[in-house]
Design a binder for these strands. Structure first.
Lengths: 234, 234
DNA sequence: CCATCGCCGAGAACACTGTTCGCAGTTCAG
DNA sequence: CTGAACTGCGAACAGTGTTCTCGGCGATGG
């Protein structure tokens, strides 16, 4: 199997695969996950529906690729925003990540719903999505590590220190051991709240406790939480 | 139209409607939202699929009723848990609400996904869901109000006080004016974080930043946030 | 250069979905 | 008792994901 010759076929195949993904993502933005239809994708591409199955084993595979693409797109946006203020101190970096995440989610609500909403019926996230999914948390952990090295005061551990130590063990294993437990916990809390705030807004649950200026509230909220994390001096 | 006679028909109708709801909720617990099928409900009831439409204008109506039922079930659980410790002080009340919410969500993950997950394709939540949906936030606001009356220290407003005042205006209108802005904000933040933490866990996003003891972490997390809200003395 | 093998697309088919319509039968109201 | 409203059924339509079979075209081995 000479690699030179094989390329023609494979390139064509990759091109079609890429087009499927593109069309699917465009359709996702319109009708949302769940509304996504393989037949509609095939229709728009001028193909028979059955032909799609030469490139995808089943619909879930397409969803997986879209999910990974979504994670990557969001991760890239957050990383770029963080990099742009990387020298401006932890508080700015924290806020940059928060705002980038919110902006991306509001600009791509359906993609956000696909990756952070309730899982679709029979779908189970395969291992491939783990890497891209952790880009933002990793960004936050790096931020906390830097701040720590720069002399960020470490909050005193609570009474349940040893129990916490055990609870976060798996996450600990992925991080340098000199990061104190309380910092790991703070990072998780920050990430959790960022997700909660953005999801509330994107999924429309903020229309009940109505806000006149969601952007201002978000800024205020995340700044306050940055204080709790110790990233922003009170 | 004598109300005595009409009752027979209406009672039968209500009974069928209730059975539809029951069967649908049972099926929801198995296959989740999106996987819910009217035909399957009819099958289990021994009815023709078309007969269901005598009781429901369309599938969305069934979803709406299930959503309302879900909100009410969750709200009741939280209210009951709060009532049980109502005299034990704000910190216990806060934690009771948090744990009740998490417990209910873990026990009914599909119902939780239905009400707090990404909205289904074409579905738009009607006004009927507003009341039940706000039971937990209202509980939190009442808690904050009580704590305030009992002498809870009010956090100092930040530099963006007047902007915040405008941002939360609609929510303000539903509350007694003596509650300070900073308290309203704290309440929203607490509610947001509770939602974020529970959703993270129920939707499986905590399997990435793996935790060995999610229950312990949740307890720690919400207690810490209770401190930020001023409900728990540091 | 030619035969061959593998891939690719098309079309039909199956099982499933939500929803509509027309037709019966039952049950109630006047 | 008669007429009208309500109820359920069966068939049908348009849509979905998926499978299978078939024909053709391109790249490959002799």
């Amino acid at each position: 199997m000479p690699p030179r010759a094989r390329l023609a076929r494979e390139r064509a195949r990759d091109a079609v695969t890429a087009e499927i993904l593109d069309v699917a993502r465009a359709q996702l933005a319109e009708v949302g996950p769940g509304g996504l239809s393989l037949r509609a994708v095939a229709r728009e591409m001028g193909m028979a529906p059955s032909a799609l199955f030469r490139y995808l084993p089943h619909k879930d595979a397409l969803l997986t690729r879209l999910i990974i693409a979504g994670y990557d797109s969001l991760g890239e946006a957050a990383e770029a925003a963080e990099a742009a203020v990387h020298d401006a101190g932890p508080a700015e970096r924290w806020m940059a990540i928060c705002h980038a995440t919110r902006d991306w989610a509001l600009a791509n609500p359906q993609e956000y719903a696909l990756i952070y909403g309730s899982p679709v019926p029979g779908y189970a996230a395969p291992q491939d999505t783990v890497g891209p999914a952790t880009r933002i948390p990793r960004l936050l952990m790096a931020l906390l590590g830097d701040a720590l090295a720069a002399g960020l005061p470490v909050p005193a551990p609570g009474a349940d220190a040893e129990r916490m130590h055990a609870a976060i063990a798996p996450l600990r294993a992925t991080m340098p051991p000199e990061v104190p437990d309380s910092m790991v916990v703070r990072g998780l809390i920050g990430w959790t709240h960022l997700f909660g705030a953005v999801s509330f807004e994107v999924f429309g649950h903020r229309t009940f406790d109505v806000l006149d200026d969601p952007a201002a509230f978000f800024d205020h909220e995340m700044r306050l939480l940055g204080g709790l994390l110790g990233l922003i001096p009170a």
